[in-house]
């Protein structure tokens, strides 16, 4: 797209998009580190995730201030308006992804010193790999303004939902197998839920990118496949 007559306008828009890309990178790193810290029970790494979240929060506030100021000063229209609204929304989703990664990291301290067989965390590691792919892909779709990629990302969220439901069953099984697993598995379950929520934020971002590029809102007809709330726990008492 050609440049604005007012060059500073372009600089401001580029600056905001740049901050968002940076935020995306930071959130990806936090997700990886938080899950690694969880699997290894590495409280040091977990602490660094918690610290990084402060940085992410302050970047989000910067984006928010910049977008509000842009709207007030330049009264953006059409594509510019969609760019700015999308930037604001995407920054909020990324900030939430950071919060969720931080929540995972916070659990590491709680697990530390307790019974935590590594194999129980494999499922969480796996779901986090998929979520990470989604986050990476959606930040790329945002920076590349790629509505086709955004649609594909939105459709892939089903995988995470399904995986979360099966992980829920798996963790229940571990708890029934050995009551000593209950504490760890409960933490893992919360972590898995956090990761599933990260997937939802990636989906939100994908929908916003689609809107930004095409000007069309996607209809909310995506099937929700997280059925964990409908999954009964059968303790074999009957």
């Amino acid at each position: 797209m050609s440049e604005h007559i007012v060059a500073a306008y372009d600089d401001e828009l580029t600056g905001i998009a740049g901050t968002i890309a940076e935020m995306g990178g930071l959130a990806e790193r936090m997700l990886v580190d938080s899950v690694t810290a969880l699997v290894r029970v590495d409280t040091h790494l977990a602490q660094s995730v918690i610290t990084t979240d402060l940085r992410l929060d302050s970047m989000q506030r910067r984006v928010e201030e910049a977008t509000i100021s842009l709207i007030a000063r330049r009264q953006p229209m059409a594509r510019d308006l969609r760019d700015i609204v999308t930037a604001l929304r995407v920054s909020i989703d990324i900030e939430r992804i950071g919060d969720l990664a931080k929540n995972i990291a916070k659990r590491v301290a709680a697990i530390d010193g307790h019974f935590h067989p590594k194999r129980l965390a494999l499922g969480v590691e796996h779901i986090s790999d998929i979520a990470l792919e989604q986050v990476k892909a959606v930040i790329d779709a945002y920076t590349g303004k790629d509505s086709v990629a955004a649609l594909a990302i939105r459709d892939r969220d089903n995988e995470i939902d399904q995986m979360y439901t099966s992980l829920f069953r798996e963790l229940l099984t571990y708890m029934m197998e050995d009551p000593r697993n209950i504490t760890f598995c409960t933490h893992l379950l919360f972590c898995a839920k956090n990761i599933e929520r990260i997937g939802d934020h990636a989906t939100n971002i994908a929908e916003n990118v689609y809107y930004q590029v095409t000007g069309q809102q996607l209809a909310d007809d995506r099937p929700k496949l997280d059925e964990s709330s409908l999954t009964p726990a059968d303790f074999g008492t009957r």
């Binding site: 604005h4 007559i5 007012v6 969609r82």
Partner: peptide, 18 residues
């Protein structure tokens, strides 16, 4: 027209581009 114009010339004009 102001959120999603179809024509390039409209887009350029209302967003303050050349």
């Amino acid at each position: 027209i102001f959120t999603n114009p179809k024509e390039r010339r409209t887009q350029d004009y209302i967003t303050g581009r050349f």
